[in-house]
């Protein structure tokens, strides 16, 4: 789809390569990859350094080189410790996927960090805020030196530092019913890392309309909840009913201490990885409720 320049959108990292020369360069590329491969245990791997050399030599993005390597059964070594769990096919699926993370606060930051490390190929990041000092207790991209900067910019810079094969599309805007249809378009999974209940419902509705699975997470105090909502599922309505929802919850009183977002964001990122890589069973029609203060974990199901 052709799109004009938008002020709120910045593309960080390599763009996608296209064109008729694809097959020729891919054959050449895979030949080079096999030549550079090293044996590690019982598989062939290629180092990050060599992936970068090939990328600049052939004018391809790192993601294209990594995908070509996976297709040639040569594993980019940076993903070696993923392999036993996500598999060859799962790793390629992750790299070909797009995930929208809505909200880059406590939850969103750790989710983005995990998705970049595991190798999700394209991240759409949505948050209109800039860092302030009370984010420093828990938001992984917040540092003393980037206070006042856009969360989207900081996230893009961090992702580029962790995994430069990941394409980042940043939208430094607050998610609204008006802009979400455009912002979520083309995503394979959406992550709800927002901090307002009514906006979470709006996000659920738009993900549902576009047929995209949604991974919900919310925190307050030492309590967190996670659930995965597929289009057509009852989702947040099972939790909150269909009536009006309050703007905020227990976090107003209990705050958002350091470790709760790490705990819940890990579960959210796991859900995304499971859906994309086609492994495990998502937390669908189930709400994981973690009360770390009491040391109690519950799994709640709808009564239907």
């Amino acid at each position: 789809m052709a799109r004009g320049y938008r002020q709120d959108e910045t593309i960080i990292g390599n763009g996608l390569f296209a064109g008729g020369e694809f097959q020729m360069s891919k054959d050449r590329l895979q030949e080079r990859i096999r030549m550079l491969a090293e044996v590690e245990g019982d598989i062939e791997v290629i180092s990050l350094e060599q992936v970068k050399v090939l990328s600049s030599e052939l004018g391809l993005s790192l993601k294209e080189v990594e995908l070509a390597a996976l297709e040639a059964c040569v594993l980019p070594r940076r993903y070696l410790r993923n392999l036993g769990t996500v598999g060859w096919d799962g790793q390629a699926r992750l790299l070909r996927s797009t995930v929208a993370v809505v909200g880059l606060g406590g939850l969103g930051g750790y989710v983005v960090e995990a998705l970049a490390r595991v190798g999700v190929g394209r991240l759409v990041l949505i948050d209109g805020d800039a860092f302030v000092d009370h984010n420093l207790n828990r938001q992984t991209f917040a540092t003393e030196s980037n206070l006042g900067s856009s969360k989207v910019q900081a996230a893009g810079a961090r992702v580029a530092g962790i995994n430069s094969a990941v394409e980042v599309v940043g939208h430094a805007v607050e998610a609204t019913p008006e802009n979400l249809p455009r912002l979520l378009e083309g995503s394979d999974v959406v992550v709800d890392a927002l901090d307002r209940l009514p906006t979470r419902i709006v996000l659920q509705e738009e993900a549902r309309r576009q047929g995209i699975p949604l991974v919900h997470g919310a925190i307050g105090g030492m309590v967190g909840q996670v659930t995965t909502i597929f289009p057509g599922d009852e989702g947040l309505y099972a939790l909150y009913g269909r009536g009006e929802v309050p703007e905020r919850g227990i976090e107003v009183e209990l705050g958002c201490p350091t470790t709760t977002p790490m705990m819940v964001a890990s579960w959210q990122a796991q859900e995304v990885i499971k859906i994309l890589a086609g492994i495990g069973e998502p937390l669908r029609h189930r709400l994981l409720l973690i009360d770390a203060e009491a040391g109690i974990v519950d799994v709640i199901r709808p009564g239907i």
Partner: peptide, 26 residues
């Protein structure tokens, strides 16, 4: 007993009830 219920739900002997406030933080 691990299943969402509304406020009109009639309780039975041995039921385990969890009561939860809204959680919305990110």
């Amino acid at each position: 007993n691990g299943i969402y219920r509304d406020l009109d739900h009639v309780l039975a002997d041995g039921d385990r009830v969890g009561i939860f406030p809204p959680v919305g933080g990110g």
